[in-house]
């Protein structure tokens, strides 16, 4: 395993993703998701919205890190906020 050169932040990152997937699975078993249409142009399920949220979060982070001097924590906060908005109204 040492060749994988784990660090604490990346370990936290992957655990979070793993926990999210596990949580979504449990949620799906408890109350199955129904496809619906929110402010996004396509009708989506819960999982779709999570994926869109995560993907746009990645791009938000890249934009902040690459082209501005704003701290990455603001990007994180913005992404979480966006993810919540997307999950609720997307």
């Amino acid at each position: 395993m040492s060749w994988m050169v784990w660090t604490v932040p990346t370990a936290i990152f992957f655990s979070t993703i793993g926990a999210m997937l596990a949580g979504m699975t449990v949620w799906e078993v408890v109350s199955p998701s129904i496809e619906r249409k929110g402010f996004l142009p396509i009708s989506t399920t819960r999982g779709d919205r999570l994926f869109i949220g995560l993907l746009s979060a990645a791009y938000i982070h890249l934009a902040v890190v690459g082209f501005t001097d704003i701290s990455i924590w603001f990007a994180l906060a913005a992404s979480i906020l966006w993810l919540l908005v997307l999950m609720r109204w997307g």
Partner: peptide, 9 residues
Amino acid sequence: FIGDKHLFF
């Protein structure tokens, strides 16, 4: 099944 579309993608 749960997650079929996402797995496929």
